[in-house]
Simulated scan of single mutants.
Amino acid sequence: MTDAVTKHRSSAIAGGQNITNFRSQAMIAAPRISHDHPNRLHDCQRSIVTDLDNLIDRATVAGWSRREVVMVRADLLDAEPEDAGGLLRTMVD
Rank of each mutant, 00 (worst) to 15 (best):
W64K: 15
R58D: 13
T60Q: 06
R40L: 08
D83E: 10
V69D: 01
I19T: 12
A74I: 04
T50S: 13
I19L: 08
S24G: 12
A30I: 00
C44V: 02
A30G: 09
A74E: 06
T90D: 06
T90I: 14
I13W: 10
I56D: 11
G15K: 07
D43Y: 09
V5D: 15
Q45S: 10
D51V: 12
A26L: 12
T50H: 08
R9T: 00
T20A: 07
D51P: 00
H42K: 12
H8I: 12
I48F: 13
K7D: 15
A12L: 15
R46I: 05
T20C: 02
D43T: 03
T20F: 04
A74Q: 09
E68G: 03
L77A: 09
A4L: 09
L41V: 15
S10K: 03
M27Y: 02
W64D: 10
I28R: 04
L55G: 05
R67A: 14
D43P: 02
M91Y: 02
L87A: 04
I19H: 10
V61G: 04
T90L: 15
S34A: 15
G15W: 05
I33T: 05
P31G: 02
D75V: 03
A79E: 05
R58P: 01
T60H: 00
T2V: 01
T90E: 07
D75K: 05
D78F: 08
D36L: 02
T6G: 12
N39E: 13
P38M: 07
Q45Y: 13
R23L: 13
C44H: 11
A4V: 06
L88I: 13
Q17S: 12
R89Y: 05
H42R: 11
L76R: 08
M27S: 15
N18G: 08
E80H: 08
S47R: 04
D93N: 13
A84H: 02
R89A: 10
D78E: 09
L55E: 01
E80D: 06
P81G: 00
G15T: 01
G16K: 00
A29H: 00
N39T: 08
N21T: 08
L77T: 03
D83V: 14
N21E: 13
M1F: 05
R40F: 00
A62Q: 01
A74L: 08
W64R: 13
D57T: 08
T90H: 08
Q45T: 08
R66Q: 09
M27C: 12
D51K: 09
R40V: 14
D75Y: 10
H8Q: 14
I48K: 11
I56N: 13
D43F: 07
A79K: 05
A30L: 00
D43N: 00
V69G: 06
A74R: 01
V49L: 00
Q17N: 01
S47V: 02
S34T: 13
A79V: 07
S47K: 03
D43I: 00
A62Y: 11
V72I: 12
G63W: 11
T90R: 15
L41E: 14
A4T: 01
D78A: 01
S47T: 11
V70H: 05
Q17Y: 14
V69W: 06
A26G: 02
P38Y: 03
V49P: 09
T6N: 07
